[in-house]
């Protein structure tokens, strides 16, 4: 059970029934949803349970995530001088990535426009008004080069995923979706991570890269075999960078992919078909489980107006968050 705002989520789900079964609270930054899914899968794998449920919920106030830096082991002056924020990390990472790989700001606007458009046909999305790339570029800059509508916002929401032993699935459903792998990785020294007053000179891959490689290996699938993907889009730059970090394209190829519409619902790899975080906000306990919900709907052919054509059989979900944690899960039917 994952949450940020609820310090003891177990205490507020009593109406699900008090049965004595093991309940664990989990918080792992923006990777919380994927972590609770991974823990539920582990409980089954280890024989602790035949059926397990991952639950996520949060209700963030406006301006959530303001905290004293000492809570994460950083000095007070880091916060006093206006450097203890997560948002500027995304601007800094995007500035460097766009520079290194020759990608235009227009691609960021097109990603945000795509997610808002997907959100507009997703009944449970939070932002449902489509915007053009031009409108998105013209909205106020939050952290250069990212504008207001290239970012997600904290909001509220809940989601849950029920898992069971694969050999028991037919008891519960005629359309089971299999969890092929579920991997959690933390940052290595040299990864470019938020809340870092300094970083070593040597660079290491993001924990996303490590989680993705391990998840593909465990699933026995490759990136070109995935038919629908939900990638952490805290902002449009994150989605763009995560396309490469998760192995779907090479660094720099995103410009052409976006121009071709490759990540649209009708493209060769639809990304964030329900509008992702940009359209759904980010209740961080629930967000990763929303990705699973969307993936299951897509694999069952029940995603309505936003259904990926061609009867997709494989799906991919990815989270990334502070202080450098990533989860990747791969699904098939």
């Amino acid at each position: 059970m994952g949450s940020h705002e609820v310090s003891n989520p177990d205490a507020i789900v009593g109406w699900l029934g008090l049965t004595g079964i093991p309940v664990r609270g989990v918080f792992n930054g923006c990777a919380t949803g994927g972590t609770s899914l991974q823990m539920a899968a582990q409980a089954i794998r280890h024989g602790e349970a035949d059926v397990a449920m991952a639950i996520g919920m949060d209700k963030h106030p406006r301006g959530a995530f303001a905290a004293d830096p000492s809570a994460v082991g950083l000095p007070s002056w880091y916060g006093q001088t206006g450097m203890f924020l997560t948002t500027h990390f995304f601007g800094t990472k995007a500035t460097r990535y766009l520079h290194d790989h020759g990608i235009s700001v227009d691609s960021l606007a097109r990603i945000a426009a795509k997610n808002l458009r997907n959100g507009s046909i997703t009944p449970h999305a939070w932002r449902r008004k489509p915007m053009t790339p031009e409108q998105i570029l013209a909205s106020p800059v939050v952290n250069h080069p990212l504008t207001q509508y290239m970012y997600c916002s904290p909001d509220e929401g809940a989601a849950a995923v029920v898992l069971c032993r694969a050999d028991l699935a037919s008891r519960f459903t005629s359309a089971p979706v299999y969890l092929r792998s579920s991997v959690l990785r933390s940052r290595r020294s040299g990864a470019f991570e938020m809340q870092s007053p300094s970083l070593p000179l040597h660079r290491a891959p993001s924990p996303t890269v490590d989680a993705s490689v391990a998840a593909f290996e465990e699933a026995g699938l490759g990136p070109d075999e995935i038919r629908v993907a939900q990638l952490q889009d805290t902002d449009a730059g994150s989605e763009l960078i995560h396309m490469a970090e998760n192995g779907f394209c090479k660094d720099g190829e995103q410009e052409q992919w976006i121009a071709d519409g490759a990540t649209e619902i009708t493209g060769r790899l639809p990304v964030n078909t329900d509008g992702g975080l940009i359209a759904n906000g980010e209740p961080i306990g629930a967000s990763g489980l929303r990705q699973v919900y969307e993936t299951v709907l897509q694999l069952r052919g029940r995603a309505g107006e936003r259904q990926v054509p061609g009867n997709p059989k494989t799906g991919y979900t990815h989270l990334y968050g502070a202080p450098g944690a990533s989860t990747v899960s791969i699904f098939s039917r």
Binding site: P69, G79, N143, H144
Partner: peptide, 11 residues
């Protein structure tokens, strides 16, 4: 990057 809005206070 730049910081275009006043950071949450505190900190």
């Amino acid at each position: 990057t730049n910081q275009q809005f006043r950071p949450p206070s505190p900190p």
